[in-house]
Design a protein around this nucleic acid. Structure first.
Ligand SMILES: [Mn+2]
Ligand SMILES: [Mn+2]
Ligand SMILES: [Zn+2]
Ligand SMILES: [Zn+2]
Lengths: 148, 148
DNA sequence: TTATTAATGAAAATGGTTATCATTATCAAT
DNA sequence: ATTGATAATGATAACCATTTTCATTAATAA
């Protein structure tokens, strides 16, 4: 049973009620460096909170994504994955993924070069195709140490 | 009933039998500039070839992907999409996607800058994480002319 | 033409995600 | 602290893209 929590206030500016599942899921994602699926989150919480259903996991993840607390993405293994979105601008990163075992590595090398490249590309694409460009995905994939 | 076809020989180096579904699906993808899903391919072929089942579409797409004829990717709408892979090195491109209506635009601007950026990143990631980097995905997304 | 067996397609199964709906829990008002 | 309105939950079923099963068909070598 959670008391007032560091995210409660920020959360309440978006939606009305601060509940146990919402706190527990957000807390888990904020602490882990993993990129977890809904099922993994469910399994991880089950021992401590067996009452939290998978349905609520999905609903909460969708809510947290829509309110900007987390990112949703996929590595192509048929399930969505989620990660806590840090408030700090510095923590923009991309993923290096093993196509065999699914290992995901965060990296943030060459972000200056990337910024330049991305900016230029966004400008050109916006003008040429009359798009409102909202974001980008950059990822590298291959075989990790163990799998290659 | 297809006779000898321009892809038959190349195809036979990979797998044994040249069949109507295989020719027809490969032919469709080679002619269209769309990024079609399995269901869309099925629907597109149905009038001319009502005997070709959705199962065969999936199996053939997987085969064509494994043998390097096509690319498989997703724009996050819950279904896989496929595009013919041109033999020409020049035709490397990325996607600008509308997150509302799903419109996909191919672009290949700044491929020189990208190549430089990608090469540098690949080298660093390979060394630092002992990965065998096999490829990358770069995409921009936003709202298209009609949807913004 | 025939024999071999890879390929096909209808149907059922799978697996991630979403919709339904009766029940529960949050929280503003008392 | 209690109450009442209703947002949130969770068990279940439904949904939907994709895969598996298996009897039948068709491509190819002989
Ligand atoms: Mn990450
Ligand atoms: Mn394309
Ligand atoms: Zn691996
Ligand atoms: Zn659009």
């Amino acid at each position: 049973m959670p008391g007032p929590h560091k995210w409660q206030q920020r959360f309440r500016t978006h939606v009305s009620r601060w509940t146990v599942p919402r706190e527990v899921i957000l807390d888990l994602l904020s602490r882990t460096s993993k990129h977890m699926s809904a099922k993994e989150i469910y399994a991880s919480l089950y021992k401590m909170y067996p009452g939290i259903g998978l349905t609520t996991i999905y609903r909460t993840l969708d809510l947290l994504m829509r309110t900007g607390f987390i990112n949703k993405f996929t590595i192509g293994d048929g399930q969505s994955r989620y990660e806590f979105k840090s408030g700090k601008k510095k923590e923009h990163h991309h993923h290096l993924t093993c196509i065999k075992c699914g290992k995901i590595i965060d990296y943030s090398d060459f972000m200056d070069e990337e910024l330049e490249f991305v900016k230029k590309t966004e400008e050109t694409l916006s003008k040429r195709h009359n798009f409102n460009v909202l974001g980008h995905n950059i990822e590298f994939y291959g075989l990790c140490e163990k799998c290659k």
